[in-house]
């Protein structure tokens, strides 16, 4: 589904990703772990199409298509979803309207019929309940004044509504206590399916206790330096990143 080949990315003239390779198959859950500054967030932003990230070499293919030629909204239509580490607050933009505009834009982009108000309400209620998001938050401005946990749940709600083919969760565990983390993880697990791939980007192993990955990769200094199964995460937890970094240097 996703194929990243020899990806080099510069931000403000500084090379952050230095030849990254990654293959994600349909229905697979990949965890990308790494120390701070290794390029984890850069990878997620490049996948979503944020300005200011210059690809100097390499390619990203999504279902065989050149992702780098697509606008952020076109990527969303194609089925890419990025859950942000710091969900953006949109004062004055009603959460419910936002979800409706978003869902209908994506449906339109996919050549599907827009949902009418009744069908939309039914869907949003059902999905909000599945991620345990208080319906009151649907009536407020998007993320404005939400707690950390509420913001992350709101991201997962958007993901549930948009039904992406590839979801990228950028540090979804950051800033969450254990209870909030469990709720968010349950929401994500409900969305696991044979047709949907997930990339989890995280610094800590604890998220992986709740969402079990099929593959774990270690990202360091702009490259994936080791890949393995879920047991790799446990080893990292045990020995720290220094261990892989040293082995890699050797």
């Amino acid at each position: 589904m996703l194929s990243i080949n020899n990806l080099h990315v510069e931000v403000e003239g500084k090379e952050i990703l230095k030849g990254l390779n990654l293959e994600v198959g349909t229905g697979e859950v990949h965890a990308i772990m790494g120390p701070n500054g290794s390029g984890k967030s850069t990878l997620s932003y490049v996948l979503a199409g944020r300005d200011g990230y210059e690809v100097t070499q390499g390619e990203i293919l999504f279902d065989g298509k050149n992702l780098l030629e697509m606008e952020p909204e076109e990527r969303a239509w194609a089925g890419i979803f990025l859950a942000l580490q710091y969900p953006v607050e949109l004062p004055g933009v009603n959460n419910m309207n936002f979800l409706r505009e978003s869902l209908n834009a994506v449906r339109k982009g996919r050549g599907e019929q827009e949902l009418d108000a009744v069908a939309f309400m039914k869907l949003v209620r059902e999905k909000a309940a599945s991620v345990k998001l208080d319906e009151k938050l649907l009536k407020r401005s998007v993320n404005a004044g939400f707690s950390g946990g509420e913001k992350k749940r709101n991201e997962i709600l958007q993901m549930a509504m948009l039904e992406p083919r590839l979801a990228i969760l950028d540090e979804t565990d950051s800033g969450l206590d254990i209870d909030a983390l469990r709720i968010v993880a349950e929401g994500v697990n409900l969305l696991r399916s044979a047709e949907r791939s997930i990339i989890m980007i995280t610094h800590y192993q604890r998220l992986l206790d709740y969402i079990e990955p099929d593959f774990v990769h270690v990202l360091a200094d702009g490259r994936i330096i080791r890949s393995g199964g879920k047991e790799l995460a446990l080893e990292l937890e045990d020995k720290g990143y220094a261990w892989v970094l040293e082995e890699n240097a050797a």
């Binding site: 979503a48 606008e71 952020p72 909204e73 969303a76 969900p87 949109l90 505009e101 834009a105 982009g109």
Partner: peptide, 16 residues
Amino acid sequence: FYLRTRGIEEQQAIHM
């Protein structure tokens, strides 16, 4: 950027 990642075109995002 946030709105666009949610499938909303730039012009519509500016309106919103």
